[in-house]
């Protein structure tokens, strides 16, 4: 069985659950639970969002949405094997936690492990072009610090087209 993983990592509300749902041919298991802390979102993921794209009888791509907070880094360990790609989701509208992003990039070290990495900005509909581009610039500085050459794209996790374009880009970068 050729089974590879796409790790989707990001902060609360960045759209991990949604992108797994959009991409997956099976519904994610019930990892949504009532949040005990008011984080402005009724449900938040306390485990892993899981989805799967069956490519053939013996080939599948697992989709794993994992929290971006460092306290969940034990879940990073779990997904950091047979990685086909690393998708980092950043929500527009709130300054990202760069300390976390720094730790995430140090942990996954996409440059050393030659893992294909894409950073996607979500909730772009809430911003103007210049502010979104400025956020992209902030992220790019962090990526360059880690020697990670990765596209920073705008993504609508609800959109099949947007999600498919993402897969196309991952596939091209992996080839």
């Amino acid at each position: 069985m050729d089974y590879q993983k796409l790790a989707i990592i990001g902060e609360v509300g960045a759209g991990k659950t949604q992108i797994v749902q959009t991409l997956s041919e099976i519904s994610p298991f019930g990892t949504e639970a009532k949040s005990t802390i008011d984080i402005g979102k009724e449900h938040t993921t306390v485990g892993i969002d899981y989805g799967r794209i069956t490519l053939s009888d013996d080939m599948a791509l697992g989709l794993y949405g994992v929290p971006g907070q460092e306290r969940y880094s034990f879940l990073w360990e779990f997904v950091n094997q047979s990685l086909w790609g690393l998708l980092i989701l950043i929500k527009y509208g709130k300054t990202p936690n760069y300390e976390n992003l720094d730790k995430m990039l140090t942990f996954f070290s996409p440059e050393k492990s030659e893992t294909t990495c894409i950073v996607a900005i979500t909730h772009c509909e809430e911003g103007d072009e210049l502010s979104i581009a400025a956020l992209g610039q902030e992220i790019r500085v962090m990526l360059m610090h880690h020697n990670v050459v990765a596209p920073v794209i705008n993504l609508d996790p609800r959109s099949q087209e947007s999600a498919k374009s993402l897969l196309v880009l991952f596939n091209a970068l992996n080839n």
């Binding site: 527009y92 300054t95 760069y98 300390e99 720094d102 610039q137 902030e138 500085v141 962090m142 610090h145």
Partner: peptide
């Protein structure tokens, strides 16, 4: 600088806004 000493334009998009 971030805690780990990375010089980063944190909040650049807010500054632009």
């Amino acid at each position: 600088l971030t805690k780990r000493g990375i010089c980063l334009p944190i909040g650049l998009s807010d500054i632009v806004k």
